[in-house]
């Protein structure tokens, strides 16, 4: 009696687990194949390089890709030095007890949970209005920089923490300054972590929409300077599907481009992390 009931619960649970997995997997395949199926027909060199026409129903996404790249550039140029500096401070120059370190860490943890629309509000109030940058690629990039800092800092810090303590001790025992130790030994060893953080941040930034609506704006012309408004790819998808009747075909194609970029990005970061693990294991 007891043993047969146990068998039953084993079977039932197995069924439940497999069903859930099939459901999730099936759903994912459905979504992906739908986008690939509808999007792939529209994609051509012309689509990637020409300007959108007729509110995006025709033409391509050339200027939009340029704006997206510029926003990412601004974002990373600003986020990298701040993020790298903070990560080094947290990993190498603060103990777990230091108040300053704890405050920074805490603040970053909370920042990581702040919804992107709030970053949008902040970016609009601070960069666009208070600093007078208006709706511009600069405002958008700066807003995204604030947003990606937690993830950038976290994985860079991991990179530094993965460097064996031996390096630090033996460098110190040779009377090397911490600056030298950092630039000659720790930084090269931590570069994979930095790279993973960098790529993840780009992934996060490129996927972002809500934070950009009121910071970098909607204008789909080719930007002439960083102070021009520029439409990011994700905003383009949003605008086509919500505000442009008959824009679905191009929206599908743009979504496919965005997903492909993200796929490339995650694959690259996984590959780097993998290589790094191998490299660390073999020589030791």
């Amino acid at each position: 009696m007891a043993s047969s009931r146990m068998l039953d619960s084993d079977h039932l649970s197995a069924i439940a687990v497999w069903t859930a997995a099939c459901l999730v997997g099936g759903f994912f395949l459905w979504l992906l194949s739908d986008i690939v199926w509808h999007g792939v027909a529209e994609i051509s060199w012309e689509f990637l390089t020409t300007a959108p026409l007729n509110a995006g129903r025709d033409g391509g996404i050339g200027p939009i890709l340029v704006s997206t790249a510029l926003i990412l550039l601004v974002c990373m140029v600003v986020a990298l030095p701040i993020g790298l500096g903070t990560a080094i401070l947290l990993a190498e120059f603060t103990t777990d007890e230091s108040l300053f370190g704890r405050l920074i860490r805490r603040s970053l943890d909370v920042l990581a949970g702040v919804p992107s629309i709030i970053f949008g509000l902040f970016g609009n109030a601070f960069f666009s209005v208070t600093l007078g940058l208006g709706f511009s690629i600069l405002s958008g990039g700066l807003t995204l920089a604030c947003m990606v800092l937690p993830i950038l800092i976290r994985s860079t810090e991991e990179g530094f923490r993965a460097v064996p303590t031996d390096y630090r001790l033996s460098a110190a025992a040779l009377g090397l300054s911490r600056f030298t130790t950092l630039t000659h030994l720790l930084l090269p060893a931590a570069i994979p972590g930095l790279l993973v953080g960098f790529i993840l941040s780009i992934g996060r930034a490129i996927a972002e929409t809500a934070a950009l609506i009121f910071t970098s704006g909607y204008v789909d012309r080719m930007p002439e300077s960083l102070l021009d408004s520029g439409r990011a790819l994700s905003i383009h998808i949003f605008d086509l599907s919500m505000n442009v009747p008959g824009g679905d075909a191009k929206a599908y194609a743009s979504a496919l481009v965005l997903i492909s970029l993200l796929f490339a990005i995650t694959t690259l970061s996984a590959w780097i992390a993998d290589q790094w693990l191998h490299r660390r294991i073999i020589p030791v």
């Binding site: 064996p164 031996d166 390096y167 001790l169 033996s170 460098a171 110190a172 025992a173 040779l174 009377g175 030994l185 090269p188 060893a189 020589p283």
Partner: peptide
Amino acid sequence: QLRRRVGMIFQKPNPFP
């Protein structure tokens, strides 16, 4: 300067990479 005057050898050999 102190650590230059006082060298140290560790239990586990730790050359730089």
